[in-house]
């Protein structure tokens, strides 16, 4: 009996949970819709604002996403001639619902950073039928190219290549690299590992001391580097595929009194350009940080302007410029502009 009651209780709790979640999302999209309506009402007379519906992942997902969302909000303002509505979700189905809502609202452009690559064909077809132009940013989807105007993405292999080229330009006699990888199979890991693997295979004076995944985890990176230090193997480069892992690696170096940074024994490389990481560069404790550019808004703006002027977009896939920062040339201005 007790058990039954308990089961009933848990079941009802779960249902409540579901209802609550469902309520949240509808409330969210409802709000977004209401906002859009209100704005449309207010600006009904002018009519020359471009209506955009922006579907993004949750800005709390990562520092990258927070910076990305901020950039979007700063670009698509009334001063810049836009009337923007936002919808956020990490779930594909909720994003699709939001897209349908935007289509009904009759936006001019649908900007999309999809949570998942699949399942977008029918809703994008609806958008096309309604004369709405779709622009993808940050993430690509598995849908026919004719369904969207353009896709603005990062090229992770290029990020890796830029980093490896920079490392090669340092002109060391011998490269003994500790390679700390991200979660295996992720796009960032594949791209950033690929360039280094190729270089090591091609050059005789490039060696991998150890190649391990720390799964974006600072503590794991610290243990991996600690293990190499304990073994007494010498190394002079740490190639970590994100800033967190580089930080963990540096903690292990500090413990063992191995000097790192500009003009020191070990070169430290990270990715993502977190603000705190760029500050480490500025202080000369790290040597290099590769950017993963979250600022797509200006690219989108350019495309929309082109379409509005009746020009055609020649390239469907647009790859953003991504910088690599060298500790010897970085400035405070760079930190403020590019730090996320």
């Amino acid at each position: 009996m007790k058990r039954k009651v308990l089961a009933l209780l848990t079941a009802s709790m779960m249902v409540f949970g579901l209802v609550a979640c469902g309520g949240d999302t509808t409330a969210d999209s409802g709000n977004a819709g209401a906002q859009a309506d209100a704005q449309a009402g207010a600006d009904g007379g002018s009519g020359d604002l471009i209506k955009v519906g922006i579907i993004n992942n949750d800005p709390n997902e990562s520092g990258y996403r927070t910076a990305n969302d901020k950039d979007m909000k700063e670009m698509f303002t009334e001063e810049n001639g836009y009337e923007a509505s936002f919808a956020y979700s990490l779930k594909n189905d909720e994003q699709i619902t939001a897209a349908q809502k935007f289509i009904q609202d009759g936006v001019d452009y649908l900007l999309l950073s999809a949570a998942d690559t699949a399942g977008w064909d029918s809703v994008l077809q609806d958008a096309q039928d309604a004369g709405i132009r779709v622009i993808l940013f940050d993430r690509t989807i598995d849908a026919d190219e004719s369904l969207y105007e353009a896709s603005i993405v990062s090229d992770m292999s290029k990020e890796g290549q830029t980093a490896v080229d920079w490392l090669a330009s340092q002109g060391l006699d011998e490269y003994n690299v500790i390679h700390i990888q991200g979660v295996m199979g992720s796009a960032a890991q594949k791209g950033r590992s690929g360039a280094l693997d190729e270089k090591v295979a091609a050059e005789s004076n490039w060696n991998i001391v150890t190649q391990q995944t720390a799964e974006w985890n600072a503590e794991k990176a610290q243990q991996i580097v600690q293990s190499v230090i304990d073994s007494g193997t010498s190394f002079n480069v740490i190639y970590a595929e994100n800033d967190d892992m580089a930080k963990g690696a540096v903690a292990a170096l500090d413990k063992a009194n191995i000097s790192h940074g500009v003009g020191k024994d070990v070169i430290v490389m990270g990715f993502d350009c977190n603000k705190w990481a760029l500050e480490e560069l500025l202080a000369g404790n790290w040597n290099y940080d590769g950017q993963c550019n979250p600022f797509q808004a200006s690219y989108i703006d350019e495309i929309i302007k082109k379409i509005e002027n009746g020009e055609t977009i020649s390239e469907k896939t647009i790859i953003m410029d991504e910088k690599g920062f060298d500790a010897s040339t970085i400035t405070q201005e760079d930190v403020d502009t590019y730090g996320i």
């Binding site: 073994s231 413990k255 063992a256 009194n257 191995i258």
Partner: peptide
């Protein structure tokens, strides 16, 4: 050599023991 423990100095100049056994104690 797994059991080798060496005495060194960390980046602030304080003496520290290092080696696999110390890592085990640590973590």
């Amino acid at each position: 050599s797994f059991f080798k423990i060496s005495m060194g100095y960390n980046s602030t100049g304080d003496p520290v023991l290092s080696g696999y056994l110390i890592t085990i104690l640590d973590y």
